[in-house]
Amino acid sequence: MSAVLYGVLAAFFNGLLVGSLYGLMALGLTLIYRVTKIPNFAFAEYITYGAYAAVAASFVIDPVNSAALLVAGILFATSAGAVIALASDELVFKPLWRRGSEVLQLLVASIGVGLVLRYSLLGAAALTGGKYLEVRFPVTYQTVFSVGGLASITTAHLLAITSMVLFAIVLHLLFTRTRLGKAMRATASNPTLAQITGINVILVRRITWLMAGALASFAGFTYSYYNPVNPESGWITLLWIFSAAIMGGFTFYGVLLSGLLLGIAENVVGFLANYYLGIGSEYNPVIALVTLVTVLMVRPEGLIRMESLVVARRV
């Protein structure tokens, strides 16, 4: 195989992994956005905290038993993410929403929450001598099969892809088929009326945040399973996540596909640009940014909408 083809294949495999992570992460962002209309910038931090919580699990659990460690990592991560997400709503977003705050104020609030979470973690890592400024989950992925030796499919791929597809299906069915999911959408669509019809909108909101936080931090765990994580890891992926969510029009399947496409584009386009034009990978985020801006300018309702139900967009 020629070097280019080989490189493209390796980039494609890597893109699959990264893209599934983007998709997985964007699902939680979408869930929050669909139910509460908050474009939540603090979402990135739920991912980071999830990864850190997973690593924290390895301090508690005997690291010899890697299966137990994986399970503990997932449990630690998801519970930490769920709790932090819920707390950020209870303490900040819900009081603002009750007062009738505009979306933009909620966005600003989420920036504030994000700053507090991210820099507290950075501060704590610095206070403890800096050895937690980068962490890694002690159990790492294994290669499942490989072409040549560089282009390979690993257990991290399997974990990311399976969970992304699974969660997207679950969320889609939840929203379109179940009482709870419809109650979530009803709450989003008209909270006062939802309350009149007997929906416990506060409970629905709490469930939403718990689910989204758990999803984010599960993604964070997955991230830490294949990559070292630092307090800014979530923040750095946030632009990709927002791009995927907006490109997918905040529909679960659309967001999944968009995340995958963006991850593959990042790696394959990045590889080709490097190979032929000598452009370094540090420019890769430009792909996400340009996608984001272009989609918003050309089709703000999303490029790949995969739901017969349309999220009504405020003008």
């Binding site: 900040v92 600003v108 504030g112 929450v113 994000g114 979470l117």
Partner: peptide
């Protein structure tokens, strides 16, 4: 920046 973030939140609230 934690303080900046807190400021934003507290003012909004």
């Amino acid at each position: 920046f934690t303080i900046i973030g807190l400021t934003i939140i507290l003012v909004l609230l």
